[in-house]
Write a protein that binds this DNA or RNA. Structure first.
Lengths: 223, 223
DNA sequence: CAGAATGGAATTTGATCATATTCTCGCGGT
DNA sequence: ACCGCGAGAATATGATCAAATTCCATTCTG
């Protein structure tokens, strides 16, 4: 199966942006939400056709993504979606546990009622996607939730680090959810929301720790 | 002053590597060791002349570096070396303290006699550079020391994260060292080496924490 | 004699460049 | 102070060159 078939269409993206930026975003989405499978080779010329741009923008987007760890450059000019092994999952877990609770703590210190409301809205859509059995929707809303939370934390450097981690496990998470389905995905987002409302820094931190552990365990077990 | 004058010459790099890779490495060194100053604009055409390559390799190297946070893309097609503000330094400190002690702990669990010996050799050269008042040499050996330590830790993902942090504060560190000189740079590397020999995980972790705090405080005070 | 391995073309893909196009900024005029 | 114009830099394209993989025929071995 060639899962590249359902890449986001280039035409759907916002106009006005430079082509390399559009290409980057399209590829990034494809990786985050599982349109590209782990181990899948990524060719420049294939993308030029699929996204309907020249090769220069594609090359730049690819370099950017490889620099972020979202793609892996083999020695011999080939680029693939990384396949995670046990060690990689361990490292990702350790890194996420080191960083994301800190972001949650910052967010708890800064969140206002509006932020909490927005997060709650996302979480509701997330629940809806789960009960609908909509894996793609779940992945999308889950990512949106954490992205919004990190935005509240207002820490661009820490957020950038965490974003690269998400890019690394995105494809594998999709595989896992595809196998397991969206059942038994008890989320700790509710705990987080409560902690945010109370400005409970330790509570927010703990909730995210739990969420991270849960998610990464799912991936680890699928190895 | 235009500090781009002393960029590493393109001809000095290893042949056989693709031009975009050579360009990337040259630029990376320039950033890490202060050949580029914070706030300095980086132009594509300037680099094509200076490094004697086409613009395509330069563009790719630049995208890669901006993805790593080493360079900053303004909205309007301009690229500059980032200037750190208080918030950025705080975040960098927090991120380094979250990650580097963990790498040190891993290293302590794995280091063998040969690793310790190599690190000691680097640290000796570092001391020599300090007593010589050689700022560039200090920066180089200090970076080499931490790079080697992280290599021992054998954790590529965590190491990649930390490397991007070093790229972010590299230019500012150079400025600070240029102002303060290399005096009063008491290093905690000795403590680290002792901890490694004893396989003292907590000790190694603490030594690196101290080293990080010390270094980042220097930068913070120069704001 | 059959199957696997080796060697070399052919094809596919990546890397680089020269060039055309588009956009931004600064300057001078109103 | 504001607006348009020109210089210069960045973006994007397609062509060209080089490298790597694949495929196939030949050959060696069991």
């Amino acid at each position: 199966m060639n899962s590249q078939a359902d890449l986001p269409a280039g035409g759907g993206a916002k106009a006005g942006l430079p082509a390399h930026e559009r290409t980057y975003r399209a590829l990034r989405e494809a990786i985050l939400f599982g349109a590209l499978a782990p181990g899948e080779p990524v060719t420049i010329q294939g993308l030029t056709e699929r996204l309907d741009t020249g090769m220069t923008p594609v090359r730049e987007a690819l370099r950017r993504l490889t620099a972020e760890g979202a793609l892996q450059a083999m020695g011999n000019r080939r680029i693939v979606v990384p396949v995670l092994d046990q060690g990689a999952v361990d490292e990702l877990t350790e890194a996420r546990l080191a960083l994301e609770p800190r972001l949650a703590a910052r967010a708890a210190a800064r969140a206002n009622a509006q932020d909490v409301k927005a997060l709650k809205a996302i979480d509701d859509r997330l629940d809806a996607a789960i009960s609908r059995g909509d894996v793609a929707g779940y992945l999308r809303e889950n990512h949106a939730f954490h992205t919004r939370l990190n935005a509240v934390a207002d820490a661009p450097i820490l957020t950038a680090l965490v974003d690269t981690l998400w890019l690394r496990f995105g494809p594998s998470l999709r595989i896992v959810c595809g196998q397991v389905g969206t059942r038994n995905l008890p989320d700790l987002h509710k705990d987080l929301l409560i902690a945010l409302q109370r400005r409970d820094i330790a509570g927010a931190s703990a909730a995210i720790s739990g969420d991270v552990t849960q998610g990464m365990d799912m991936i680890a077990q699928s190895l």
